[in-house]
Design a protein around this nucleic acid. Structure first.
Length: 227
DNA sequence: TTGTGTTTTACGACCTCC
DNA sequence: GGAGGTCGTAAAACACAA
C-alpha cells in the first residue's frame, strides 16, 4: 500500500483513483487553510475526512491542519438508538439532543444533523407513499371512465339499431293506416312489444310510441336528437 | 479492478420563531 | 440575535455489475 503524507497526517492509497482523491483532498486542505478570513464573506470549505482513513470509532477524529474531521459512519447500535428516538419524536429539542449525544457518545451536532437528514428521508418516503396512493386512485378512475365510455358506445349502437327498426315499422304502418280504421296497432320489435297510437282527429302521420306502457318519443323528435 | 449508481453524513444558505 | 428548522448539495461510504 502506498501513502502520502501532509504534516503529521498519512494518506494511504492502493489505487490510482484513490491516489487522485488523496491529492484532491490535500489540495483542498491547503486551499482551505490558505484562504484567510477576507473582508468579504467567503464560503468556508467543508470539513471532509480523507478517503484513505477508515472510520468507525472516536479514534477517527483527527486534526487535519487545524480542521477536526469526525468519524463518518455511525455504528449500527447508534443508528438503532437514533431510529428508536426518532420514532418517538421527530423534532429534537436541545435537552433531548444533549441527552442522546451523551448516551451514544456522539457530538450533539452529529445528532442534530442525523435528525435533519432523517426527517428529510421520512418526508421523501411520505411523498412517495402519497404519490402511489394518488396514482392508484387515478388509475381506478381512468379504468371506470373507460368502462363507462365503452358502455355508452354499446348503448348508442343499440339505440341506432332500434331507431332503424322503428323507422322501417313506421313506413309500414303509414302504408297500413290508410287501409285501417283502428286508432292503435301493436307490434313487436326485437321481442319488445310496442304499441302505436294514432291521435284522434289529428295528423295520422305523427304517431306516439308506447314502450313498456310508457310514451317515449315522437319519431321526428328522436331523429332530430340522435341521428 | 474499476466505473457507476445509491445511501449516508455533513454543511451552507436561508427562513421562522421566540 | 440565536436556536433550530428546511432545502440543496458535496463528498465519503457502500453495493454491484462488467
Amino acid at each position: 500500500m502506498e501513502q502520502m503524507v501532509l504534516g503529521s497526517q498519512v494518506y494511504p492509497y492502493t489505487t490510482q483513483t484513490q491516489r487522485s482523491q488523496c491529492i484532491s483532498n490535500i489540495v483542498n486542505q491547503i486551499d482551505g487553510s490558505s484562504s484567510g478570513e477576507g473582508s468579504k464573506p467567503v464560503k468556508r470549505r467543508r470539513k471532509r475526512r480523507s478517503k484513505g482513513s477508515s472510520a468507525t470509532n472516536d479514534d477517527d477524529v483527527v486534526d487535519m491542519g487545524g480542521v477536526m474531521l469526525r468519524k463518518r459512519k455511525l455504528t449500527d447500535e447508534q443508528v438503532n438508538m437514533l431510529e428508536y428516538s426518532f420514532e418517538n419524536e421527530h423534532k429534537l429539542e436541545s435537552g433531548r439532543k444533549e441527552k442522546i449525544a451523551g448516551e451514544l457518545g456522539l457530538d450533539p451536532r452529529q445528532v442534530a444533523v442525523w435528525f435533519q437528514n432523517r426527517r428529510a428521508r421520512w418526508k421523501n418516503k411520505k411523498l412517495e407513499e402519497e404519490y402511489a396512493k394518488l396514482k392508484s386512485h387515478h388509475d381506478s378512475v381512468v379504468l371506470g371512465q373507460c368502462q363507462l365510455e365503452s358502455q355508452v358506445l354499446k348503448l348508442t349502437e343499440q339505440l341506432s339499431e332500434a331507431q332503424h327498426e322503428i323507422r322501417k315499422l313506421t313506413e309500414r304502418l303509414g302504408e297500413m293506416s290508410t287501409n285501417s280504421s283502428s286508432s292503435s296497432i301493436s307490434v313487436e320489435c326485437n321481442d319488445v312489444p310496442i304499441e302505436f297510437e294514432f291521435a284522434a282527429e289529428t295528423d295520422y302521420n305523427i304517431p306516439y310510441y308506447m314502450l313498456d306502457n310508457n310514451y317515449v318519443h315522437n319519431m321526428d323528435y328522436w331523429d332530430g336528437l340522435y341521428v
